[in-house]
Nucleic acid binder design. Structure first.
Length: 601
RNA sequence: GCGGGCGUAGUUCAGUUGGUUUAGAACGCCGCCCUGUCACGGCGGAGGUCGCGGGUUCAAGUCCCGUCGCUCGCGCCA
């Protein structure tokens, strides 16, 4: 007989009755009835009820075993007597009568419960992650993660993609997020950087002629965290040669859609999958106030600046902003005019908590406009408003007035707040959409300069011609995002594979040829020896799993993960290192004093 | 860097307008009882610097200030 087990804890059925078996696992729960003791033995495959009774010399020992101890038992499988079968368990028709038992590892009193969700805080769960991971819910999510990556690999390979690994120790690159840096021992004063993404490597693989690349790539970015952002994360990274933007969509969309379809009932509720028509970036910003709109929210934003600019409208709060170049955006909330005053007040309070002066509105009932602002908008203007916003009797309309970019953003937030207040966000559906035609450049208010708005390697639409002849802020890029339920799932572009267009594009953003050569010389050189037109995208693997598992944050879909401050309480990272290590790396610390003393105290 | 929320037993939480000798509950833990449970049940017990520091007050878990920790967001993140 095997040293530890003949079967797994989810294996045994009525057909095994009479067999002598050996099982190993964790004590999930005990039920001690004095003369008879039930032990639920658990492994990742299931739970089997094991029994000791007064006839056994083991009884006195077994009563002492604590939950979560690891034991090995040998015993006979028998049918549960009488009515005592448990239909909730796959193994519920049998039990194992324990003849021999070994305690492989006794457990101390555990800091939180494994067999049930006792609501333990996240900091504790992360500190004792190995216990947290024993819980059924975590086992399921980690299994989901495994199955999702396997499914993606299978689907990509079926489409003739080749999987690559690319360097983890690489060069710092100037654009984008802050890099994680690794000091070099062999090269004093020099540093490697961990890749923010394998961007340049995958492009060079295209230049190398591989045609269809993918990688489930670790990426590292040293910026502050969010529920959907971590220091290290994984992307399904994709790149293809000789393709247009639509070719890329048509290739990756079935992979993502098929994978989502495969796991869309993970939560126990089947989710529909819907892929909406492409959305232009500018339209997204106007209609939804976001470049990653949640399209389960049916509300749309319209511009009604014209209405409030009319001479017969006397609402000074808005007029003042409009005269300084501002805009008024409106959100129609259908059939809410009969809601109590508190409905509108709550939204107003919400807007103030977001730093807005308030959230003005007019509600229409019995053909009449009502609400605090209505008296400033005469009937003729109300008619124009109704037409612009598609208002019907019984509707209300909310207003946001500010300078364009601020108004867009606030309207986007208000759109979600109103939707939630109304309770009409669509459920049990994944609504996907490609957001396309991102602007190549944007005006940076803080530096008062034109800069790349997304990836500087993107190909400008219209190529050299547009760069030379158009207002830079009017140049679009072949740059796109894939959006699902309010998350940016992917970002991608057709790349700029022509060095001369690259030079021009960087020049417009204020980077000279010397800078370009210094920072991206390797990439530029590669383009000079025959570069195919190419493009790709990268999907946030963790965000996709988070959506499928219906979890509110990324940390829930990793086995091991840092907390919100990017500290790992389990492994104690980041940590101090020895003076010898620092010396090897030619590094002297220069830590601000107050930080030192805080940490010491 | 900034803002919101939270911090009371091992865990999750309650704790009224500041006011009664010993700050409660559930789960967990320890002891005793119980032969058919499966969230077993019953009786009993241990367990607290109310995050920390200061202040107001006759009196602070409760009010004020500071600070630390966790969390969500803003900035940041092509």
């Amino acid at each position: 007989m095997h040293a530890y087990r003949t079967h797994r804890c989810g294996d045994l059925r009525l057909s095994h009755v009479g067999e002598t078996v050996k099982l190993s696992g964790w004590i999930n729960r005990k039920r001690d009835h004095g003369g008879v003791l039930f032990i639920d033995l658990r492994d990742t495959y299931g739970v089997t009820q094991c029994v000791v009774d007064e006839g056994s010399p083991l009884l006195a020992h077994a009563e002492q075993w604590r939950n979560e101890s690891v034991i090995t038992i040998v015993g006979k499988v028998r049918a549960r007597p009488g009515e005592s079968a448990n239909t909730k368990l796959p193994t519920g028709e049998i039990e194992v009568y324990i003849d021999e038992a070994d305690v492989q590892s006794a457990a101390d009193v555990i800091p939180f419960q494994v067999a049930e969700d006792d609501g333990a805080g996240e900091d504790l769960r992360l500190k004792y992650r190995y216990l947290d991971l024993r819980r059924e819910k975590m086992q399921k999510k980690i299994r989901l993660r495994n199955e999702v990556t396997a499914s993606i690999r299978r689907r990509m390979i079926e489409q003739e993609f080749q999987e690559f690994q690319t360097p983890i120790l690489t060069a710092s690159s100037p654009e984008g997020a802050r890099d994680y840096l690794v000091p070099s021992r062999l090269h004093p004063g020099k540093f490697y950087a961990l890749p923010q993404a394998p961007q340049q490597f995958k492009q060079m693989l295209m230049i190398s002629g591989f045609d269809k690349y993918f990688q489930i790539a670790p990426c590292f970015r040293d910026e502050d965290g969010r529920a959907d952002r971590l220091a290290e994360f994984y992307q399904l990274d994709v790149e293809m040669s000789f393709v247009t933007q639509e070719d890329i969509f048509n290739t990756v969309q079935p992979v993502i859609e098929g994978m989502f379809e495969e796991f869309s009932d993970f939560t126990g509720t089947k989710h529909k999958i819907e892929w909406l028509p492409h959305l232009r970036y500018e339209d997204a910003m106007l209609k939804y106030g976001s470049d990653k709109p949640d399209l389960r929210n049916p509300l749309e934003i319209v511009d009604v600046s014209d209405v409030f600019a009319r001479d017969d409208v006397e609402f000074k709060a808005f007029k003042g902003v409009i005269s300084k170049g501002g805009v008024v955006r409106a959100i129609r909330a259908p059939k809410v005019s009969d809601r109590p005053r508190s409905f509108f007040d709550k939204l107003n309070n919400w807007a103030q908590s977001e730093g807005a002066p308030g959230l003005g509105y007019i509600s229409f009932s019995e053909g009449e406009g009502k609400g605090p602002i209505a008296k400033f908008v005469p009937e003729a203007a109300q008619i124009q408003l109704k037409e612009s916003a598609g208002l019907e009797d019984g509707d209300a309309v909310f207003f946001i007035c500010d300078q364009k970019s601020k108004a867009e953003k606030m309207a986007g937030l208000a759109r979600d707040a109103i939707c939630d207040a109304m309770g009409n966000r669509e459920k049990n559906i994944y609504k996907f959409c490609w957001v396309v035609d991102f602007p190549m450049y944007e005006f940076d208010e803080t530096t008062q300069k034109i800069d790349f708005s997304h990836n500087p390697f993107s190909m400008p639409q219209g190529g050299m011609d547009d760069l030379e002849n158009k207002d830079p802020l009017g140049v679009y890029a072949y740059q796109y995002d894939c959006v699902c339920n309010g998350f940016e799932l992917a970002s991608g572009a057709i790349r700029n594979h022509k060095p001369e267009i690259m030079a021009k594009a960087f020049g417009i953003a204020g980077y000279g040829k010397d800078v370009l050569e210094k920072e991206f010389g390797g990439m530029l050189n590669a383009m000079r020896y025959g570069a195919p037109p190419h493009g790709g995208c990268a999907f946030g693997l963790d965000r996709m799993i988070m959506l499928l598992a219906d979890e509110p944050n990324l940390r829930e879909v990793y086995a091991f993960v840092m907390n919100g401050q990017y500290e790992d309480q389990l492994m104690n990272a980041p940590s101090d290192i020895t003076p010898e290590q620092l010396k090897d790396l030619h590094i002297k610390l220069n830590v601000p004093k107050e930080i030192k003393t805080e940490k010491a105290a």
